[in-house]
C-alpha cells in the first residue's frame, strides 16, 4: 500500500513536473533524511532544540539553494526564514515551557499503544515540543517567503524605477493574496489530523472550556497557530529584504553567483566601456 502510493507519487511527479519533478523528489528525500537524522540525534540525548535549529537551517539551505539556485530571491528568502525561525523560537520557548505542552497528552495516554512502552527516556519533552513547533513551521514559511520574493523580483524587473518603499508595498499586497491559501493549507491539514481527537473529546463529554485547557487540543492549536504567525511574519521581512538586496546588488555580489540582474549590470558596464 505504502509502496504503491509512493510509486503513484513519483509517476505523477515525473508526468507533471518532468525534470523539476525529479528535483522536487530528490529534495523531498533529502528533507525526510534530514528529519530522520535529527530525530535519531535527539534520541541519542543531544539537545533537541539545538538539533532542530541546525536541521532547520540545513533544510532551508538545501531546499532554497538547490531547488532555486543562488540568487537575490533565495538569498533574501533564506535570510528572512532564518530571522522568523529565531523570532518564533523565542515565542515557542515561552509558550512551550510556561504551558507545559510537551509530552504525550492525556487523551493519547488512554490508548493501548502507549502503555506498551517504558516511559523512562530521560529526554526533556518541553524541548521536543519546541522542536515540533519549529519543524512544522519551516515548510510554510519557505513557501510564503519564496512566493513573495519572486513576485517582488518580477515587479522590479518590469519597472526599474520603483523605490524600496514601493517594492515593499507591492510585496505586502502580493503576500496578502497568497497568505490566505497558505494558512488554509495549514489549518485544514491540522483539522484533518485532529478530527478523530475532536470526536473523542466529544465522546468524553468535554465542554469547550475543558477542551481549551486540555493538553491534546493545546498541542494542535499551538502547532498550527505558530505556523500561521510564522507565515505572516515572513512576508514583510522578505519584502523588505528583497527590496533592499535588489536595490543594493553590488554589496551582495559575492553571495549571489547565479544572479541574473548582476550579469545584466556587467553587460551594461561593458557596453558603456565599449562606447
Amino acid at each position: 500500500m505504502l509502496k504503491l502510493l509512493v510509486l503513484i507519487l513519483v509517476i505523477l511527479l515525473y508526468a507533471i513536473g518532468r525534470e523539476r519533478g525529479i528535483v522536487t523528489f530528490v529534495s523531498l528525500c533529502f528533507n525526510i533524511a534530514a528529519l530522520s537524522a535529527s530525530i535519531i540525534m535527539m534520541s541519542w540525548g543531544w539537545d533537541p532544540v539545538a538539533v532542530t535549529i541546525m536541521s532547520c537551517f540545513v533544510i532551508c539551505y538545501v531546499t532554497l539553494f538547490y531547488q532555486n539556485g543562488k540568487n537575490s530571491k533565495t538569498f533574501s528568502s533564506f535570510f528572512s526564514v532564518a530571522a522568523v525561525l529565531l523570532i518564533l523560537f523565542a515565542i515557542s520557548c515561552f509558550i512551550g515551557y510556561r504551558s507545559h505542552s510537551g509530552g504525550i497528552n492525556e487523551i493519547m495516554q488512554l490508548e493501548d499503544e502507549i502503555t506498551r512502552y517504558a516511559p523512562d527516556i530521560n529526554i526533556d519533552m518541553s524541548k521536543i515540543a519546541v522542536s515540533m513547533i519549529l519543524t512544522g513551521l519551516i515548510g510554510a514559511a519557505m513557501d510564503a517567503s519564496i512566493a513573495v520574493a519572486s513576485a517582488v523580483y518580477e515587479v522590479y524587473k518590469n519597472n526599474r524605477n520603483l523605490s524600496i518603499m514601493e517594492l515593499y508595498q507591492s510585496g505586502i499586497s502580493i503576500g496578502g493574496d497568497i497568505l490566505g491559501t497558505t494558512m488554509n493549507t495549514l489549518y485544514f491539514a491540522c483539522l484533518g489530523e485532529s478530527l478523530s481527537l475532536f470526536i473523542l473529546l466529544k465522546n468524553y463529554q468535554y465542554s469547550v472550556l475543558d477542551m481549551i485547557n486540555s493538553k491534546a487540543f493545546f498541542q494542535e492549536f499551538t502547532d498550527v497557530t505558530i505556523s500561521c504567525i510564522g507565515c505572516i511574519l515572513v512576508i514583510p521581512l522578505t519584502a523588505i529584504s528583497i527590496a533592499y538586496v535588489i536595490k543594493n546588488l553590488s554589496q551582495f555580489e559575492r553571495f549571489l553567483p547565479d544572479e541574473e540582474l548582476l550579469l545584466e549590470l556587467d553587460e551594461q558596464i561593458e557596453k558603456e566601456e565599449n562606447k
Binding site: 527516556i121 512544522g136 489530523e193
Partner: peptide
C-alpha cells in the same frame, strides 16, 4: 509543487515526534 509538498511533509510529520522518540 515543490514548496507545497514540503508544507504537507513538515505539517504532518512534526506531530509524530514525541511518539517516534
Amino acid at each position: 509543487m515543490g514548496t507545497m509538498i514540503n508544507i504537507m511533509l513538515f505539517a504532518y510529520l512534526c506531530g509524530a515526534f514525541p511518539l517516534i522518540i
